[in-house]
């Protein structure tokens, strides 16, 4: 039982990061129909910005994360402005290839700046809390709480503000959005900026638990695609639920079956869902 609880908490922590990454991906897909593989690079860049702030500038963890969020919002927005805006009206393949190109370009850039070395990110939250026999590192608690806070913030932004309403409107009907007077280019830029900020939160949260390296975004972006397809392309609740479910399934399989098996789950599920229910398990609805 203690083992189960322990793994459950670990799964929820991992799921928090999966969900945050999947959220950024699904938002951009929902609004712009761009399958943004480069989102994995934004996540990686978010982790590096926090790493640099913590190690070179001696910033506090919270400040490092805040700087990372701002930098990545700008980076995400620039991605839209410099690349995807110019591909408007082209085939979806153009955007997809551009996104893949950006992913490898940014990974290459990180490699040039920091080298292929795995970096350890320090965290002030290195204590351990014991609850019902379960050991939880403070960093994991922070991951879980910060993810929930971010998700609630995103929810309020989407549902309660005019900016959020314009994002939803554009996701549902781009032409309708134009006709009511929404500047769809501005919304596109904003959506990419929000997506970058979400990637920064995810990357900064996970950095102290894993190692930071140039290709760290590759596996997680593929898993985020699994989650987004599982949850219904463009669906916000689908991305959140899907992220937690996938992480829990992986963690449990790794504990009770074998670690090798856990890595099979995501992609096995992906193929299964695509064959059986290509529209995803949840109804679309930002």
């Amino acid at each position: 039982m203690t083992l189960f609880l322990q793994q459950f908490v670990n799964g929820i922590a991992l799921g928090s990061v999966y969900s945050l990454v999947a959220l950024g991906l699904t938002l951009v897909y929902g609004v712009l129909k761009v399958p943004n593989f480069a989102h994995g690079a934004l996540y990686m860049a978010g982790a590096y910005v926090s790493y640099v702030m913590l190690t070179s500038f001696g910033a506090s963890y919270i400040v490092a994360m805040a700087v990372s969020v701002v930098v990545l919002a700008v980076l995400g927005g620039s991605m839209e402005w410099l690349v995807f805006r110019r591909l408007e009206g082209k085939t979806p393949v153009h955007s997809m290839i551009a996104a893949l190109g950006l992913l490898f370009f940014m990974e290459g850039t990180a490699d040039v700046i920091w080298g292929p070395t795995f970096r350890q990110v320090p965290t002030p939250f290195d204590g351990v809390v014991t609850l019902l026999g379960v050991n939880i590192t403070e960093q994991r608690i922070l991951v879980i709480v910060a993810a929930v806070v971010t998700m609630v913030g995103l929810y309020l932004l989407l549902k309660r503000t005019l900016v959020g309403m314009s994002i939803e409107a554009m996701a549902q009907d781009r032409e309708g959005a134009l006709l009511v007077g929404i500047d769809t280019r501005r919304v596109a830029l904003l959506t990419f900026a929000i997506s970058g900020a979400l990637a920064a939160v995810a990357g900064s949260l996970i950095a102290p638990l894993l190692l930071v390296f140039p290709n760290m975004g590759e596996l997680i972006i593929l898993k985020a695609f699994v989650i987004v397809i599982l949850g219904g392309m463009g669906s916000v609740p689908g991305a959140i639920l899907g992220g937690y479910l996938l992480a829990l399934a992986e963690t449990m399989a790794g504990t009770y079956v074998s670690f090798a098996f856990s890595e099979l789950i995501a992609f096995g599920l992906l193929v299964l869902v695509l064959v059986i229910r290509p529209t995803g398990l949840f109804q679309k609805g930002v």
């Binding site: 309403m165 549902q172 309708g176």
Partner: peptide, 22 residues
């Protein structure tokens, strides 16, 4: 417009509110 281009998943009230976006 032709085809209406409503925000089909949003409520009637929200559609109207968005109509007043400007």
């Amino acid at each position: 417009p032709e085809g209406k281009h409503l925000f089909t998943e949003a409520s009637v009230r929200k559609n109207l509110l968005l109509g007043a976006y400007v």
